[in-house]
Design a protein around this nucleic acid. Structure first.
Lengths: 338, 338
DNA sequence: TTGTAGGCGTTATCAC
DNA sequence: GTGATAACGCCTACAA
């Protein structure tokens, strides 16, 4: 791919590079006739300014890095969708990396993107990340950083999260309202911020309705089919088995749903089902399940917007904030007997 | 983000930039002691070579562009996953864009990525793209190009596709074997290469089994709930209604599945169901449906690999080829009465 | 109205 | 073993 440069144009038209440069930028000081010549030649030869040269000069790459645990995950791909939309609109590239839920890979990718001089970084932490020194140090050295969804407590910067507490609270309250008392909570890895928030919403609702908390009803990060089996066995072996499920992710919902079907558990007669969802597969397939919709696309848009503000308005020290995006509880008529 | 440069190191250590550069690259001609000094200082100050300067010098960006119709689509996000994995391993960035199934946007993004000097482009065409002059011209000007999944006929370069013909053939034959004769084919936009291939596999199987083709059984790009309703009504209003469904995408399968449930159609007693799938949601939810699995991740890996070969081994003129990835038919025991 | 020169960060080439 | 210089493509302050 041999790209034509200003120099080529200058040579071809017997002009200096500065004249060509100015003509291309439609500078007032250039003779209209010269301008026309330059413009036409540039057009004809498909001239495009080399952004790499500009980046070098202006010390910015017009690109932002995004690190998510997993690209092929509906939630994150929706977020990336929002990020791409917002970034492209403001003239930025989006460079995507995935940590694959590995701390080492996360450190590696962060390092890689920083070395590649992205103008800022958008990050959702891997579930195995506890130490965030690598990010702290980068942040202190001035790299604009915005976290979304899975956020750290320690770093003082913008953070965008869905209102998981409220979502879990609404869902749990809804189940309690309908008379359910033994609500199993199937959730993600215990270390994640989202996990904690959802648990806290769940607990708050129990408390509000005077229902005692039973830790046997909470199951963490149990994705494999065997784990699902084991957990369901354990849950239904309880003296007081669950009469409802609150799930933290589509994948969990689907697997437990299938597991329950296998056991011939009737939904919603035997158990009621509510889950955090992005896929909306549940709705498509018409099972009697309510969903707590996650604003993934908006989260991406907003996070990217905040990051770009940070990048472009660097001089004035920004007020860092946590943006809470409201989740919505969608109750299906058929999901509860009542 | 103020990054330290070779110049800074040179100044600090009273050396010339060339010496520092050589020391950092561990050149044999540099005094070990000097090397040590430079290395230590660089380490201490977090020196990282500026890839933008290198790009300018070497006239390459070490990044590849990817344009997909939609990021938040399970199929494409799996492909992107494969692309990211392959590219990262070979030291390349992946810059993601989406055409959102719009021809104009596709042209715009192609132009944008080319202007940004990506070293190559990975592309799956939007469903509305018919004119590919913009790509032809870029390709002729030497930009390495690899197509996947939704490929054009005209451009002579690498193309990676799943074996849709064979997948559809297998699935249709399977349904015919089980005694079904009226197989509805619910598929994507008529213009796409994948649509044509699947239809051809479907037709080939019908022919092989001596079953006449009825065009009333083929429904194109009918995603909305209203369209699903209309199509199902039309199908079941036929004198000879369908006794099986072959669907081209998870989204279609799920919507028609739900539509059939609404009509109280029993699966697989009334109709048998086979669909192209990536989600595997169907399997998770245990409906009596067989799936034709698409090798999306591998497609990404392979397409990226081919592109990088093209980029890196440019001198020797490459042999362009179409890579067919085999699809697999997964038959569920419960999916057919037999 | 146009041209010259210097610099962004790096490395290769050629001196010393 | 180390240093000076030019070059990658662009822009801009300064000269003419």
């Amino acid at each position: 791919m041999d790209n034509i440069t200003i120099k080529d144009i200058a040579r071809a038209l017997n002009l200096s590079t500065s004249t060509v440069s100015r003509a291309l930028r439609d500078s007032y000081e250039i003779n209209p006739e010269t301008k026309r010549l330059v413009m036409e030649y540039a057009e004809e030869k498909h001239y495009r300014p080399n952004p790499i040269a500009l980046s070098l000069k202006e010390n910015r790459s017009l690109s932002i890095g995004v690190i998510v645990p997993e690209i092929a995950n509906n939630y994150f791909s929706q977020t990336i969708n929002g990020i791409e939309a917002a970034a492209y609109e403001r003239g930025y590239h989006v460079v995507i990396c995935q940590s694959q839920e590995s701390y080492e890979r996360e450190v590696d990718k962060v390092e890689h993107l920083a070395a590649r001089r992205v103008d800022g970084l958008l990050l959702s932490l891997s579930s195995n990340t506890v130490d965030i020194e690598h990010l702290k140090s980068l942040h202190e050295r001035g790299l604009p950083l915005v976290f979304f969804d899975r956020i750290p407590a320690e770093i003082d910067t913008h953070k965008v999260v869905a209102d998981n507490h409220s979502g879990a609270f609404q869902a749990t309250a809804h189940l309690l309202e309908s008379g359910r008392r033994r609500i199993a909570h199937i959730t993600s890895q215990p270390g994640l911020s989202i996990t904690k928030e959802r648990l806290s919403g769940y607990l708050a609702a129990l408390e509000e309705y005077g229902v005692p908390f039973d830790e046997n009803l909470v199951k963490y990060c149990s994705y494999t089919f065997d784990q699902v089996e084991d957990n369901l066995n354990a849950l239904f072996a309880l003296a007081d088995p669950p009469d409802a499920f609150l799930t933290a992710a589509d994948r969990l919902a689907l697997r437990y749903y299938a597991g329950l079907q296998k056991r011939n558990t009737r939904i919603p007669e035997d158990v009621a089902f509510v889950g955090f969802s992005n896929l909306n597969v549940a709705e498509l397939l018409n099972p009697p399940m309510s969903t707590i919709l996650q604003p993934a696309f908006q989260m991406g848009q907003i996070a990217a917007g905040l990051l770009l503000d940070l990048i472009e308005k660097k001089p004035k020290s920004p007020v860092f904030q946590t943006v809470q995006l409201s989740t919505e509880l969608h109750v299906r008529a058929s999901s509860l007997p009542k």
